[in-house]
Amino acid sequence: MLMARNLIDLKKMQHSAGEAVKLLKALTHPDRMLLLCQISKGERCVGELENLLNIHQPMLSQHLGALKRAKLVKTRRVGKNIYYAVANDFAMSIIDQLYRHYCLKNMLI
């Protein structure tokens, strides 16, 4: 009986592993990490992101599109401006940990 409690549902585990891999793939580019760090601090429009991070079109649009497809960010349009905001709190908790470990540590030098 004890043995049955420890069994893992392979289908659920495979699905979860696939979801984790999608998230990690979306995070594997330095520019996407920078974008997520900026967006995690508050909603930003495309022009702001371009100026803050010095990432220019069309690369900026490609990275933002990848983050949107991965459901890490959501958009809101106001006139001609598109604003990006956090759409996945779990992913942002990972970004927060990476920020604390890599960014804050290097800023204190």
Rank of each mutant, 00 (worst) to 15 (best):
L2P: 00
M3Q: 07
M3I: 09
M3C: 00
M3R: 08
N6D: 09
L7I: 12
I8T: 13
I8P: 00
I8F: 02
D9K: 11
D9S: 11
D9V: 10
K11Q: 14
S16R: 15
A20V: 09
A20T: 08
V21F: 09
K22E: 13
K22C: 02
L23W: 03
L23Y: 03
L24N: 04
L24F: 13
K25H: 07
A26D: 06
L27T: 10
L27D: 03
T28S: 13
T28A: 11
H29G: 04
P30V: 08
D31I: 00
R32G: 00
M33C: 06
M33A: 06
L34N: 15
L35H: 00
L35W: 00
L36W: 07
L36E: 02
C37W: 09
Q38R: 14
Q38D: 11
I39W: 02
I39R: 01
S40K: 10
G42I: 05
E43K: 15
E43C: 08
E43L: 03
E43A: 14
R44K: 15
C45T: 04
C45R: 13
V46I: 11
G47E: 14
G47M: 07
G47Y: 10
E48G: 05
E48Q: 15
L49K: 07
L52N: 09
L53W: 08
L53S: 04
N54Y: 06
I55S: 03
I55K: 03
I55Q: 06
Q57W: 07
Q57H: 15
Q57E: 15
P58D: 05
P58M: 07
P58S: 05
M59C: 03
L60F: 05
Q62D: 11
L64N: 04
L64E: 05
L64T: 05
G65N: 13
G65S: 13
A70W: 07
K71V: 03
L72D: 02
L72F: 04
T75A: 02
R77V: 14
G79M: 04
K80M: 03
I82C: 05
Y84F: 15
Y84S: 01
Y84K: 01
A87P: 00
A87C: 00
N88Y: 04
D89P: 09
D89H: 12
F90Q: 08
F90Y: 11
A91V: 04
A91S: 06
S93R: 15
S93N: 15
S93A: 13
S93F: 03
I94N: 09
I94L: 15
Q97H: 13
L98T: 03
H101M: 10
H101I: 13
Y102N: 08
C103D: 06
C103A: 11
C103R: 11
L104E: 13
K105I: 06
